[in-house]
Nucleic acid binder design. Structure first.
Lengths: 211, 211
DNA sequence: TGTACATCAGTGAACGCGCGTTCACTGATGTAC
DNA sequence: TGTACATCAGTGAACGCGCGTTCACTGATGTAC
């Protein structure tokens, strides 16, 4: 029998050390410059303590690296939020989601700043991916609302739009949350209030399947 | 009597042609790249059809140019909104403000895209200035609400925060408005709905001076 | 009215530097047999 | 068990290029007197 096997370096788990260093260096720099596109490949390699050429071993260009960061971190976030929803008790879905999102932001400050900056950044592919991610989070929230709260008579389509706008707002506020250390509690509680405002106001204006 | 006079070129009205060309070229390029910092001075001069050195005649660096754009356009916008509020009939303040903002965006698409991108951009001074601008617009809205709508018992401080978050949301959505030509009506009407949701939900959650 | 002078937008050549990219190399690790 | 081979991360030197910046210049316009 022929034992088929991938080259070891491709087997999940043992990622090349340099690749990780490059990703982390890029995140650090992109958070400062608010852009991946503005980073130089030599600059990133320097920050990572590696030879400029090592960059080419792992990425075609800076956009590829940015996409890697977006998919990795996006995956982590939506996994986190899924777990939260599974464990959160009814009617505090909003508070739990906001808390989880901002805890995630506090744990990954530079990556979150770098990615939120890319929401309206220079790479269309990255922008599109992040919007998909936000759509996913919005759907997650909608499911939570439908499941735990009393059905408020908003059409699914309107509810998703509402949730998407809310997620957009929460993501943007997460930058303030990260950067303004001394106002984190205030910002988080305002985010929770805003969430409630969205759904209370939404029920009034979109409710009973008016829209 | 000694006739004091400024050098003519400084007298308001006759701005150097090259300066305007540079500003317009920079706006065009910054809208594409979503960043002023990412622009090269030679790149801007080339786009303007001028010698690279001409840049130095008018600006110290790219940040100075970005600040010029921010103050100019910010001034125009708040003037426009002030006029709107003066002329708008009661209770349609939200719709009128949104309509005016998005008409402004449609008239200055590249400048608006470039500046909204700077909301979380690389230049702290520009960021701060744009936040001040948004605060001004928020105050304008608050005045409109206090003046035209029935007092809803929200504390001034909370109302301002609410209006600020709304303005943030509207500004960010203005990019979608500009870029998605075929969905402009839909986006604008969603923006109006969101405005109502903010104040209706706000009245519920912050109303009667609870918060 | 005419002339000399100051101001200032815009030009053109030149500089040193860091950039992205290419090429040929090393050295470690794992696999075939 | 040992040996030959393949794979792949990382290195180092070298390239041509566009960049920001400096300097000395031109030419138009307006002012002093």
């Amino acid at each position: 029998m022929v034992t088929e096997s991938l080259p070891t370096a491709v087997v999940s788990g043992d990622e090349a050390a340099g690749r990780r260093s490059l990703i982390q260096a890029a995140i650090r720099l992109a958070a400062r410059k608010r852009s991946f596109k503005a980073l130089g490949l030599r600059e990133v390699a320097r920050e990572a303590g590696l030879n400029p050429n090592t960059f080419y071993r792992h990425f075609d260009d800076m956009e590829a690296l940015a996409m890697t960061v977006a998919t990795e971190l996006g995956g982590q976030l939506s996994q986190t939020l899924k777990a939260i929803r599974a464990n959160s008790t009814r009617s505090e879905a909003a508070r739990a989601t906001v808390a989880a999102t901002y805890r995630f932001a506090a744990d990954n400050p530079e990556a979150v700043i770098a990615l939120v900056s890319e929401l309206n950044g220079a790479y269309p592919r990255v922008r599109a991916h992040l919007r998909m991610l936000m759509q996913g989070v919005a759907r997650e929230i909608v499911d939570g609302v439908r499941e735990y709260a009393s059905d408020n008579g908003i059409r699914d389509e309107s509810l998703l739009k509402l949730a998407y706008s809310l997620v957009e707002q929460l993501f943007i506020m997460s930058i303030d949350y990260i950067e303004q250390n001394n106002r984190r509690d205030e910002i988080e509680s305002w985010a929770v209030t805003l969430s409630k405002i969205y759904f209370a106001g939404g029920a009034l204006l979109l409710g009973s399947r008016k829209n």
